[in-house]
Amino acid sequence: MEHQIRTLTARLLANRSLPRTDPLVRRALVDESFRVDLDARLAAVGLQLIDNPYAEHVAVALAGDMHEPVFGASREYAASNIGLTRDQLALLVVLWSLIILPKRERQVNRQKLGDDGQEDMFGKAAPLAHGEEVSGALSEASVLADFAPVLGHKTYVQGKLLSRLAQLGFIERRGGMIHEGPLLDVLLDYRLLADRIIYGTLGEVLAQAGHPPPGQDAFTPADDMPDDADSEQEES
């Protein structure tokens, strides 16, 4: 087991994220003793495993008590600890809202893309879905038309904003479409952002751009979100 924990730790650090379907990742999610040892190994160097049961990937991030010692000396830390500019952060939150909020609604309701939920009377008992079957894509041209006038000209948004978010793994750009990247759902805190977006200023901005976020009733309250073990049993 020691060798597997070392291997998984090294791969997480080297790749930044790993899919939940990876054999060692799945073991970390269902084997309590393996997870305890992995958490201890990561904690020894100030890290923690980030696992959202709705996300398709897991990742590593700094432990909470390490934020200030690591980033506190940098003035930029107030805005971003990965060097994102304000406009890059703004676009990241917009894309998260347009991709993850509808995706979460489909996951909570056990619906796939293009499914209105009326054909399956046992939909609520279906396994929690991940990947392309629930995560929609955005037209890059549509995003540019809606938000480039606010964030800068088209070339700037494509070359400086979208390319940086893709490089970091938040999004993937394929065939003129913007898809969810491995880090988009796992590193941005849904519980923190959802209410602020649905009820906040960004919700109005999205609505004005023709992208109203889904209604609050579709979402699971924080206390009702499934834990890791329950989620993995559903996937099995």
Rank of each mutant, 00 (worst) to 15 (best):
E2V: 11
H3L: 02
H3Y: 01
Q4R: 15
Q4E: 15
Q4C: 14
I5R: 08
R6N: 14
R6L: 15
L8R: 02
T9W: 01
A10Y: 01
A10R: 06
R11P: 02
L13M: 04
A14M: 07
A14Q: 08
V25P: 00
R26V: 09
R27Y: 05
V30L: 11
D31M: 06
D31R: 07
E32M: 04
V36M: 06
V36C: 01
L38R: 11
A40G: 10
A40C: 08
L42Y: 04
G46H: 11
Q48C: 14
Q48P: 10
L49K: 04
D51R: 12
N52T: 04
Y54G: 11
H57R: 02
V58F: 08
A59I: 13
A61H: 11
L62W: 12
D65R: 14
E68C: 09
E68M: 12
F71I: 12
F71E: 11
F71R: 07
G72A: 12
R75H: 07
R75S: 07
S80W: 10
N81R: 14
N81C: 14
G83L: 06
G83V: 07
L84H: 14
Q88A: 00
L89G: 13
L91F: 00
L92F: 13
L95N: 04
L98S: 02
L98A: 06
I100P: 05
P102Y: 03
K103Q: 10
R104N: 06
E105D: 02
N109K: 14
K112F: 14
K112R: 15
L113N: 09
G114K: 02
D115E: 00
D116W: 01
E119C: 10
E119N: 11
F122Q: 00
G123I: 00
G123P: 00
K124W: 03
A125Q: 14
A126W: 08
L128G: 08
A129P: 04
E132Q: 06
E133I: 15
V134F: 10
V134N: 07
S135C: 03
A137K: 10
L138W: 12
L138V: 11
E140Y: 10
A141P: 01
F147N: 03
L151F: 03
L151I: 00
H153T: 07
K154V: 09
K160D: 04
L161Y: 07
L161V: 10
R164V: 15
R164N: 15
A166P: 00
L168F: 11
G169N: 03
F170W: 09
F170I: 08
I171H: 11
R173K: 15
R174N: 13
M177W: 08
M177E: 13
I178E: 06
H179D: 12
H179I: 11
E180H: 01
G181N: 12
P182K: 04
D185W: 02
V186Y: 05
V186W: 00
L188D: 03
D189N: 10
D189Q: 09
R191V: 12
L192Q: 03
L193E: 12
L193C: 13
L193P: 11
A194G: 05
A194Y: 02
D195K: 08
R196F: 10
I197D: 01
I197M: 03
Y199H: 14
G200N: 00
G200K: 03
E204M: 06
E204V: 09
A207N: 13
A209I: 02
G210A: 09
P214Q: 03
G215C: 01
G215W: 05
G215F: 01
A222C: 03
D223S: 10
D224G: 04
D227C: 08
Q233E: 11
S236C: 05
